[in-house]
Amino acid sequence: MISLIKNEWMKIFSKVSAYIFIGFLLVALVGSAILVKTMNNADDWKAKEENNIQSQQAVLDDPKTSEEEKEWIQEDIARSQKLLDTGINPNQETSWTFMVNWVTSIASFVTLFAVIICSASVSAEFSDGTIKQLLIRPHRRWKVLLSKYITTLLYAATMVVVLSVAGYLVGLIFFGSASFTDKMIDPTSFEEVITLEAGPYFFELMLFWVPGFLIIITMAFMLSTLFKSQAIAVGISVFILFASSTLNMLITSLVERYEWLKFVLFPHIDLRRYIMESAPMFEGATVGLSLGVLAAYYVLFIAITFIVFNKKDISI
């Protein structure tokens, strides 16, 4: 098995795309840091909030202001005052806030690149006509397939590690060191002012991202065994990846009418919603339910993958 994994690992890195994907992550990190460094003006945040309170108070005291406008203005004033009370600069970028704000966002490219690698893993053998040479070796089919799956997971894990380590180093270089437990303002809290510890929050976000990431690349790997054409396998996988957010919104809007939609995959892929949003996706949604749904689909995808591959006609 180890020799098979080594062979598959060499196959991945024999392609220029494997290096391009990792290089793109590094360029994206540096580009993001330069953009933030150029545009971020964090020095006068207190003055801005104080000026906002004064200007909004003047509008609030204006007799022409409607009651509806007053309610919104009072909330805006309260938010500015809460920011001042915390003493935490909401625009301050440090190595750990950069990890929270940018590394977690760039992780979506890791998903895309991993999907491309996984969906081409088996289908490329059929497209290139090398599947027969692969299976005439003294290894059972399931071992060959498992080695491919493990190797694609290892490459995906490598990209995650590169992204995380490089992200921290880029943040360190551009924004300086910061304590792991330094406070930051929750970037997703618009009405309330919620303070978080930046380092633990980053790892929490990544931990909640991993299950959905694993499901997506497993689904892409399954599609790679279902289609002999590499182009079709990659195309369908990428389409599903980009369409998942739209399907998620559609399913969430209909789940009250059709309760069985609670068990459809797409609303459960991104578990970060449980820590980034105050309200659940739908009534009854819990982390336990989402993990259970993801586990069920994972078993289903793995079963289909190995059953289909073991019975697949390898004639070219």
Rank of each mutant, 00 (worst) to 15 (best):
S119A: 15
W209T: 12
V36E: 10
L250N: 02
L289S: 02
T225S: 07
I269M: 08
P63M: 06
V264Q: 08
G284V: 04
E125I: 04
V193C: 10
Q54G: 08
N51Q: 14
I5M: 10
Y149C: 09
I217D: 00
A295L: 13
F202T: 07
V255A: 01
D61I: 02
E75M: 12
V234I: 14
P187V: 09
T188K: 13
R141A: 03
I117A: 05
F13Q: 09
A124D: 11
S278G: 09
F306M: 04
M184F: 10
S127N: 07
I136E: 10
N101P: 03
Q54K: 15
E49W: 06
D76R: 12
R257Q: 13
T97W: 01
A156T: 09
P138Q: 11
Y297L: 05
K311A: 08
Y168P: 05
Y274S: 12
K11H: 05
I240Q: 08
M219H: 04
A295V: 09
S127K: 06
W45T: 07
P200Q: 07
K228N: 14
G87D: 05
I194G: 11
I53Y: 01
A33L: 08
L265N: 05
I34W: 10
D270M: 07
I53V: 14
F239H: 03
N40R: 13
I236W: 03
L146C: 08
N248L: 13
A124V: 07
A42K: 10
I20Y: 07
A178E: 04
H139E: 10
V36A: 08
I275A: 03
S278W: 09
F309Y: 10
L26V: 11
S121M: 12
L153D: 02
G87A: 09
S224L: 04
T195E: 13
Q56L: 02
A124M: 08
V100R: 00
A303V: 13
G199L: 04
M219K: 01
D186Y: 11
T111Q: 04
E49L: 09
E125M: 04
M39S: 14
V234F: 03
L300R: 03
N51P: 08
E204I: 12
I302G: 02
M159C: 06
M184R: 04
I251V: 15
V234A: 07
T158F: 14
V162R: 07
A114Y: 00
M159Y: 00
E259L: 06
W102G: 00
T188G: 10
F113A: 01
P200T: 09
I77Y: 00
E259D: 13
L271F: 06
K183Q: 15
F221W: 01
W142P: 03
G212I: 01
F203Y: 15
Q57S: 15
M219R: 01
I275Q: 03
T188S: 15
S108Q: 12
F301L: 11
T305L: 02
S32L: 08
N7Y: 14
R79H: 11
F208W: 11
L26E: 01
S119F: 02
L291A: 02
S17Q: 13
E192S: 15
V27K: 11
E50F: 06
E71N: 11
W45E: 05
M206V: 10
P90A: 08
